[in-house]
Simulated scan of single mutants.
Amino acid sequence: MPSPSERPRQSRGSAFKAAYVSAMLNAALMAMQIVIGLFAHSDGLVADGIHTLSDLAADGVVIAVLFLGAATASGRRAAPRDGSFPASLASLFIGVLLIGTAGDMLWHCIGPAAILTVSATVRASALIVALFVMFAKEALFRYMRAEAHRTHSSILLASAWHARLDAFSALVATLGIIGSMAGLPMLDHVAAGVIGLMILRMGYSNCWTALKDLSTRPLGNTAGQ
């Protein structure tokens, strides 16, 4: 049984492991979604792949925040009284990233290129990948939520719920692909737009929460007294 002094180190190690697992899985899923989405003529799957790309960037921010926390602990520096300051900055960065991603995605859905891609027939491989991504994201959510509760990591818990939303967006992509294969190719394009709106809403929520938290925080708490 670990001693009280070893428990924080083990918790940080478990949090790092969960963040790395999320990053590696998102990298693999992103490549699969975009490549197969382009090959199978599925706008919905490509849009979900772009969403996963933003998730990969968010994983990088999570790892960076955990690394800074570990460096502070190992250096025996006094931790800030409000340790959520780095998490707030990370949440703000992720929100801006998501808004930019959503804007590009929605432009693709309503821009000139949209008319040319509606007539393409979605192939069955897109449906297989979308279903796989949906179950993989749900499994990732359950794993990261358990690790977040075990390590008491708020940023890991936020990342876990992000994975749950990803599973829902994969479901939207799946329904769009099924509709396209059933003879309604516009539904796959609509699914891409819906995913874009979901990402936009999530980005706005992240930014609003982070800005509200940062604006109400005394400046002295950000300096790591």
Score class of each variant (00 low, 15 high):
residue 9 R to L: 09
residue 10 Q to D: 08
residue 10 Q to N: 03
residue 15 A to P: 00
residue 15 A to I: 01
residue 20 Y to N: 04
residue 27 A to G: 06
residue 28 A to E: 03
residue 28 A to H: 02
residue 33 Q to M: 03
residue 34 I to L: 08
residue 34 I to S: 04
residue 44 G to Q: 07
residue 45 L to T: 03
residue 46 V to Y: 06
residue 51 H to E: 09
residue 57 A to W: 10
residue 59 D to C: 15
residue 59 D to F: 03
residue 63 I to T: 02
residue 71 A to E: 14
residue 75 G to L: 09
residue 77 R to E: 13
residue 78 A to Q: 14
residue 78 A to L: 11
residue 79 A to Y: 05
residue 80 P to Q: 08
residue 82 D to H: 12
residue 84 S to P: 00
residue 86 P to I: 03
residue 91 S to L: 10
residue 97 L to F: 01
residue 101 T to V: 11
residue 102 A to F: 06
residue 102 A to N: 08
residue 103 G to Q: 09
residue 110 I to H: 11
residue 111 G to M: 11
residue 112 P to G: 04
residue 112 P to A: 15
residue 113 A to C: 04
residue 116 L to K: 11
residue 120 A to W: 02
residue 124 A to I: 02
residue 125 S to W: 14
residue 125 S to L: 13
residue 125 S to Q: 15
residue 125 S to G: 04
residue 128 I to G: 09
residue 139 A to S: 15
residue 139 A to Y: 07
residue 145 R to N: 11
residue 160 A to F: 05
residue 162 H to K: 12
residue 164 R to A: 06
residue 165 L to E: 04
residue 170 A to Y: 06
residue 172 V to D: 07
residue 174 T to Q: 06
residue 174 T to V: 04
residue 175 L to W: 05
residue 185 P to H: 10
residue 185 P to I: 04
residue 188 D to F: 02
residue 189 H to V: 07
residue 191 A to W: 05
residue 191 A to L: 05
residue 209 T to D: 08
residue 216 T to F: 05
residue 224 G to V: 01
